[in-house]
Nucleic acid binder design. Sequence first.
DNA 1: CATACGTCCTGCCAGC
DNA 2: TGCTGGCAGGACGTAT
Length: 305
Amino acid sequence: MEGLRGRGRGSGLSPAGDPVAATVTHAMPELPEAETIARGLRNPLTRRRIARVRVLRPDLLLEAPSAFEARLVGRRLGDVGRRGKNVVLELDDGSRLVVNLGMSGRLLYRSRGDASPAPTHPGVLLDLDEGAGTVVYDDVRRFGRLRALDADAYREWSRSLGPEPLSPTFTARELASGLARSSSPVRAWLLDQRRVAGIGNIYANEALFAARIDPRTRASAVPTPRVRSLHRAIRSVLRAAVAARGTTLRDYRTSEGVEGSYAPRLRVYGREGEACDRCRALVVRTVFGGRSAFHCPRCQPEPLP
DNA sequence: CATACGTCCTGCCAGC
DNA sequence: TGCTGGCAGGACGTAT
């Protein structure tokens, strides 16, 4: 995959003896990144009023810009939260602005007179009242999407997503019954937002490593004890990544523009050809379902056909 | 119905 | 050195 060729972490030390910078590749904003962004926006945005909406890139919206603007302008912001990988801004009329960050999206808060460099690919701007600053949706690749939903539409949208993996109501039993009904590879199952909300390719691979499951294993073929491990692994990996404010490989930043610090803790993702830090076997990359999977062939034994 | 696959978009880098 | 083709991926639409 991009950036995993050539100069990578695998080379260990640079000629100068300094640790080589983390592998450069795309970040995929997943649950921990969305959670971090939501937390960062909560204080500066709550109770602020949206004075003006500027849509620079209409293709980021799932509706006409005029309808989008009409739903937002004049509204006061409530709490800022998260659903799966989406950042959710509550509005005072019960509607919500849902932001999916796609591959390279950033949701930044810039106070008035912010001296930091201006965002390079602004797509949508929300100017706040009384000079309180601006919320900038910035996205190089424009895979992200913003939607303004009334209360009913939001409920319907939320219902289309699977359970929150960090919620106490997400149980090993529920995971087991979901897996049992699918013949997809377990990695594909974890990436499907209708099944569990918030897991992307990075944390799917990391959780499967922690649970010692080959990512190609059919979901229904994961043995029950492994399902329990996977349930624990999903939750512990996501919690640790939230605590680290997410994984920055290249694009992802918190709402304050800061990088997440989970990247050095990745054990298989992006580490093709490197020694597994549990058993020293070499990490393998496979491609299926149109994207890279990483696993340790010794810790995560190949499923029987 | 469930699963598989193509599409979007652009920065980066290998290779000429 | 400079140019360029291929690659990567989340979500959605379409095909099997």
